[in-house]
Design a protein around this nucleic acid. Structure first.
Lengths: 198, 198
DNA sequence: ATATAACGATACGATACAGTATCGTATCGT
DNA sequence: ACGATACGATACTGTATCGTATCGTTATAT
């Protein structure tokens, strides 16, 4: 996105303007907020302009279409999660799932994700974003599982994808489908069940 | 919805008109189709009128608002599923999950459900519909689990809700989140894992 | 055969939204 | 200080939608 040029001395601003940065930030922040509240469907450029105080003209100076802005805002919603290293598979998995269980009812992205999933059902661009978000969620689990294989704690034949689904699936199910609370006993029961059957 | 009156002889039509029935059916069929294609957000009464050939005026004679029509159409999307009785818990659970695994990538409701989930996140009426759909999905599982408890095949202390989440969660996860195929080996692996840890 | 109810066609008002155009002003880098 | 650039305000076009109003036509039950 950053303009690169061979003759960097005549470029108006090698590092972006402060004003531009301010505008973009204000717009994106409001876009986040709006997405969290109403999802992708009810997102409108006019409303972003109203709330952010930035003129609609300026928004269209930075993003060519509404679609582009929504996609940009969604892309920055990917939850970066740290990968724990407790030494044991059970410890790692527990740390990850407890963290997710804590985020699921509160984090902003958990309110927007259904909207993205829905849109992704018919829109390839959103399918791509969704895929990236998804990989982000599963990445720490995949890593600790691979490590467990390396330590010999887990069979090299174990199907990591299946285990991830068995661990994350029930939590996601409770958040968006059965809408039951995701408390500690539940998380522990899921972990115990999955690890016991390996 | 059916009009009941004490003086049934003076009522214009005790059993509804054929015309009314035809109109309602044409409208609902088109509404289904439209929902399957674009979800709740992109659903419009004008489009239903265009496709069904039924005048918009007529649609509003039967449903007071767009909202009411969408809700009615969604309500009829609940998948009725039969409860198997193979004699063993594993047999019953397998029958149910294989059936769901087969429906998930194909059934109409699977394309609309994300949209309903998303809408339910902010709209109580849709939350209610979603809840009914959800109970419908889980009902057969709950029943065979209860039966297993009755037979002594399953401890009376077993947490049925947790087991349902452990079984359905991974399948739903693959359909809408990781978007991986839900093949027979996967389903079997999930069932084996859950039942083994009881 | 006829009255009643349902229907179709069309037009309408109100609102929301995407995206563009214009023009004057404020801010930035130098 | 000054020129380039970004910004704000406003207005505008075009479209989509909801929901209503009107009125003539058709199907229905009896």
């Amino acid at each position: 996105m950053v303009t690169t040029s061979k003759k960097s001395e005549r470029v108006p601003s090698a590092n972006l303007n402060r004003r531009v940065e301010r505008s973009r930030h204000a717009i994106l922040t409001t876009a986040f907020e709006l997405l969290s509240e109403g999802g992708v469907a009810s997102f409108s450029v006019d409303e972003v302009a109203r709330r952010s105080g930035v003129a609609k003209t300026t928004i269209y100076r930075h993003w060519p279409t509404r679609e582009a802005l929504v996609i940009d805002a969604c892309s920055r919603m990917i939850a970066e999660q740290e990968t724990p290293d407790t030494g044991s598979l059970e410890g790692d998995v527990t740390a990850i799932l407890v963290e997710i269980a804590h985020l699921l009812p509160t984090a902003n992205w958990s309110f927007v994700l259904p909207s993205i999933v829905d849109t992704a059902e018919r829109n390839p661009e959103f399918a791509e974003i969704h895929s990236r978000i998804q990989r982000g969620h599963a990445a720490p689990l995949r890593e600790v599982l691979q490590r467990a294989v390396g330590r010999g704690e887990l069979s090299a034949h174990a199907d990591v994808s299946t285990i991830v689904a068995a661990l994350l699936g029930p939590l996601f199910y409770r958040r968006w489908f059965s809408r039951e609370p995701i408390d500690d006993p539940f998380v522990k029961a899921i972990i115990k069940g999955v690890l016991a059957s390996l």
